[in-house]
């Protein structure tokens, strides 16, 4: 009997398609709707200690096979976020609280609040590529990463996931530093920019942003494969997944589950349902009962 249910990073999911952080997950009603329309779980927008407006638009640039964004970590601040989690929890599926901070103490404070709000796990944003002092600036320092993960693992009862950046010289070094996490989420966006030739200007108000979408899938696959080949840790694949084949490729590279973000632009919120239905057909046709049978099968 085919089942899409997976256990990953210390939690159970009825299907492996998770909404990636930063997409449609700032407010509770939207997260609830995404869950109702088929996602197995949602990761919240990254929440910090203080309220932030983010950058002023343009915050996105759309290409044929990619999106570059520099939202600038907009968020209502952790104190205002409990209400959103409460609304989203009516979706009756796991909510993973994404948090960003510049150091151990703030990460712990945010993680503790998220736990109090009732999330199923926290995802540490160690990888946002476009805000000074946060994200990948924290996540490219293995000593700091080890310290943050160790502290949160030692203090929180809920699982801790670490979302890592591909914008480092060795993803394996950072993954090793974060290996105590219940899961590694690979990858965040690839640092990028867009120039408009007509006006001779960078398009994003912040000039630099992070690239996502189909074009970065090969980078994501490489990171998942490279890490799973060396480390015994659950991996959640993310980066350019827009159909079930993309998801299978990530699973075969070593991911136990996957996240979807940019594909929502072309396929809408229905993308989660579509991909999980297609996966189920694939499993039936190939006599695969559990996706876990396929995790890492491509690794040589």
């Amino acid at each position: 009997m085919v089942s899409l249910a997976v256990r990953v990073g210390g939690i159970n999911l009825e299907n492996p398609a998770i909404l990636a952080s930063g997409i449609l997950d700032e407010n509770g009603y939207t997260m609830k709707r995404v869950l109702e329309e088929g996602a197995g779980a949602v990761v919240t927008k990254s929440i910090g200690v203080d309220e932030r407006n983010g950058y002023y638009p343009p915050v996105v640039v759309e290409g044929n096979s990619y999106l570059i964004n520099a939202m600038g970590l907009p968020n209502p601040g952790i104190e205002n976020y409990g209400e959103e989690i409460k609304i989203a929890s009516n979706g009756r599926k796991p909510i993973i609280g994404s948090i960003f901070a510049s150091g151990v103490d703030d990460f712990l404070r945010l993680g503790t609040s998220m736990e109090d709000f009732g999330v199923s796990a926290v995802e540490l944003n160690l990888s946002c590529p476009h805000v000074r002092g946060f994200g990948s600036e924290v996540g490219s320092d293995p000593v700091l990463v080890r310290d943050i993960v160790k502290t949160l693992k030692g203090s929180l009862k809920i699982p801790v996931w670490s979302k890592l950046s591909p914008n480092v010289s060795s993803i394996l070094d950072i993954a090793e530093a974060a290996v105590e996490s219940d899961a590694l989420v690979l990858i965040n966006t690839v640092r990028a920019m867009a120039i408009d030739a007509e006006t001779r200007m960078p398009v994003l108000s912040n000039a630099y942003g992070g690239m996502s979408g189909e074009a970065i899938k090969p980078v994501g696959l490489r990171c998942v494969y490279e890490v799973k080949k060396e480390l015994n840790v659950d991996i959640i694949g993310v980066g350019g997944i827009s159909n079930y084949t993309d998801a299978l490729e990530y699973i075969m590279a070593g991911a136990s589950s996957f996240q979807i973000g940019t594909a929502v632009i072309k396929s809408g919120r229905g993308v989660f349902k579509k991909i999980t239905e297609d996966l189920e057909v694939y499993m039936n046709n190939n006599s695969i009962e559990r996706l876990s049978q396929l995790v890492g099968v491509a690794i040589r």
Partner: peptide
């Protein structure tokens, strides 16, 4: 409204994105 293409969740109302 920020992105205009249905991903940033800025313009949402009861889970609907006003932009899309």
């Amino acid at each position: 409204m920020k992105c205009g293409i249905g991903i940033c969740d800025s313009c949402s109302i009861n889970g609907y994105q006003v932009c899309v």
